[in-house]
Design a binder for these strands. Structure first.
Lengths: 129, 129, 129, 129
DNA sequence: GTGGTCTAGACCACA
DNA sequence: GTGGTCTAGACCACG
């Protein structure tokens, strides 16, 4: 829930991803009004221009819509949201597999490593719970 | 097989990844002499400075070693190579899972999507073969 | 026929254009009383202030006149209406041609494209009719 | 050739249109390097950020491509340029006809006015020539 | 020298 | 109070 940014990538990109995540997870409901640009800026200790840039990305993806002088709202079209989730998910898998193959792993090996790590991660979670 | 770089990330990083991949896959054998900086620069139509930086990354990781006035060679220590592969592989999996969860997917869903895409990718490959 | 506004331009401008169109087309007859500001506001789900501004534009153009405590009426002077139509029409043509030339089209090409699109548009209309 | 901007629309939009026009007309050749962001800024007496924003629009349309730390170049794909010209041209015609109809003109009337104004414009040009 | 990113701060039209 | 636009100026990685 904290707004932590790493220095390796542009803040506005990380911010866009964070808010996107919030929408896809339903933390921001469909049709809901987002915090204002200035509120976001305060929350994240960031310049309003940076927020605007981040939200511009979301608007391009069709995840949010701007109502002039009223605010920015999560889109009402559920299909947009689902589409984004699917697209981004598939892209992630494709990139992941491509990167693993660049390391010399075969399809089967990728599957094995993935399974191992996934289970390891889940057991970590239950420890923390 | 061409040296294609995207504009979104530094060229020297992409180059380092590409050569790393070559080493991990065995295209450059253990102990083998790498092409000279100039040769790399010509192959990739890139500034020699850029090649220097890329190779510096590899040297830092212990994948290659410089022999003064002779050239740069792939390390002879197999453990180095295996370690790199493992580290990088685990990091990739962890990042992948983290990103997927940011999209709102559960552990099981990630597994399903991964399996689907992996199989789709493999059938594509066999088509092209 | 609904009151739809796009977010890229001020609502009051779009509203002014819409009502102007109604007058020029004769949907609001000469001398006819216009709906009250409040009625317009309800019809368009818009702030009354916005309606005020829109009607102010029309009054400036001489298309409507305010009678204190009675309402706003379409002008009785037909010349006003004709003049507005002519001015606006010519301005539109001039802008259109200027914009097309900015795209690199010659006068003849503009004519051809215009004719093609116009006919295409008309055949679409007759389909819907 | 002068960089004149009107106050009614954002500078970065007008700038984007102006440069787009230059590309479509061939004043900037395919594959040619554009002036740097800073040069544009000086030419137009405008802040570099504003230029960046303008060029970002062109990049989105696929008319130009950025090579990191080298400059921005007109795309090499002629199809992109032709496509843009066609799309923009058709959009202009459609908007024009729609606006004229909103003034109460019939299809035939639009054609007549268009022809008259077009010829008037051309005779003006020959006078100046 | 190039583009990319970010900040601080300002003004504006609009609702 | 909202988003939109713009400026001035800074720093950075890269080539």
């Amino acid at each position: 829930m904290a707004w932590q940014f790493t220095g390796d990538r542009p803040i506005y990109i990380q911010m866009a991803e964070h808010i996107t995540s919030g929408i896809l997870k339903g933390e921001y409901q469909m049709g809901e009004k987002l915090p204002s640009v200035r509120e976001f800026a305060l929350m994240a200790s960031v310049n309003p221009n940076t927020v605007q840039r981040a939200l511009f990305e979301l608007e391009n993806m069709g995840l949010i819509e701007t109502q002039r002088n009223t605010g920015k709202f999560v889109t009402l079209e559920e299909s947009r949201i689902e589409m984004s989730r699917n697209e981004m998910g598939k892209a992630l898998v494709a990139d992941f597999i491509k990167s693993m193959k660049a390391l010399g792993y075969s399809g089967e090996q990728i599957k094995d490593i993935f399974e191992n790590e996934r289970k390891a991660g889940e057991s970590n979670e239950s420890e923390n719970a």
